[in-house]
């Protein structure tokens, strides 16, 4: 029961306090890939610990221990009556777990289906408007506004407008398109979809809302880093400024300029890679978030297994 309480506490505290805690990781902007893993692991650990808490509350540890030793033994233990799980509680736990899983899958399905529909509609319009430029390896659209973006998916493609092409030098265009291809090749839309799923499933949870915004920001940094491997950072920075400034301001779409500023500063003055301590902290955080709840939930079961079934092997 204690385990269940701890897991439930982790679930609630994680949903409320983790965003503030994770935001404090000063290394996130220097290692976007690791930071994305951290945010998604944090998101995942909340429903997982909720599920485990429910099960820990319903099924006594010793039964899980027997279960590990084999299904026959769990049945034997149940019928023997020494640690009989309450059938009503088990059923209730199953019902809760099923609804959590179904709810999450529905949210995920809705996100993916909606995205696919929107992409298909856009791709269809592009097939009328754009022409593929083999030299650039991108779809060129006649449009005065300076835009570059990508349409992910199985036949993902980078798109750039003639307005952007006119305002950028060829090497800047190459850097911009490398950024877009980094999105496509890295399947960043799936990372975004994962974050979106959590936020869609539970819109009021601060952790999920924060994770969605952070992952969206971090994939841009990640794509910049990938593009900067092949292209001079200064070209990418200059291209970012050109693209960001030559555009009609749209009040409706609001803020978000800080990310643009940050990206340009990052490209202009590269920061040192992570030190060993920071790498360790990041890795440890992800591991703890992912494996912590499961280990905690399995602990009583495991100890029961050891005590009941391995006494011949163990010295105690």
């Amino acid at each position: 029961m204690i385990v269940a309480v701890i897991l439930a506490l982790h679930c609630v505290a994680g949903a409320l306090a983790l965003p503030r805690l994770l935001r404090r990781a000063g290394w996130a902007d220097r290692a976007p890939r690791r930071a994305i893993a951290m945010w998604l692991a944090a998101c995942g650990s909340v429903p997982v610990s909720a599920l485990l808490a429910v099960f820990a509350a319903a099924v006594p540890g010793p039964v899980v221990g027997h279960g590990l030793a084999g299904w026959l033994e769990i049945c034997a233990a149940m019928f023997a009556g020494d640690a009989r799980p309450d059938l009503a509680r088990v059923l209730a736990a199953l019902a809760v777990a099923t609804s959590v899983v179904v709810w999450g899958s529905c949210a995920g399905g809705a996100v993916l289906a909606g995205a696919r529909r929107e992409r298909a509609r856009h791709a269809e319009a592009l097939s009328l408007l754009g022409r593929h430029d083999n030299r650039l390896g991108a779809l060129v659209v006649d449009h005065d506004e300076r835009l570059a973006y990508c349409v992910p998916g199985r036949r993902g493609q980078a798109v750039i407008t003639t307005g952007a092409l006119r305002s950028l030098a060829p090497e800047q265009v190459a850097a911009v398109l490398a950024h877009e291809r980094a999105h496509l090749r890295g399947r960043h839309h799936l990372l975004l979809a994962a974050a979106e799923t959590f936020a869609r499933a539970c819109p009021r949870v601060p952790l999920f809302a924060e994770a969605r915004a952070e992952v969206a920001r971090l994939v841009e940094l990640l794509a910049d880093d990938v593009a900067a491997r092949r292209h001079p950072r200064a070209h990418l920075a200059a291209a970012l400024v050109r693209l960001a400034t030559g555009r009609a301001p749209a009040a409706a779409l609001g803020a978000g300029g800080e990310t643009a500023l940050l990206r340009i500063r990052r490209m202009l003055s590269p920061q040192p890679p992570l030190g060993r301590r920071e790498r360790l902290t990041g890795g440890l955080t992800v591991t703890l978030l992912l494996a912590g709840p499961a280990t905690l939930a399995a602990a009583p079961g495991l100890s029961a297994l050891l005590v009941h079934h391995c006494h011949a092997v163990l010295p105690f």
Partner: peptide, 11 residues
Amino acid sequence: AATLVHFLERL
């Protein structure tokens, strides 16, 4: 999230 990854937000 899932549809288009944008190069830059509007400013």
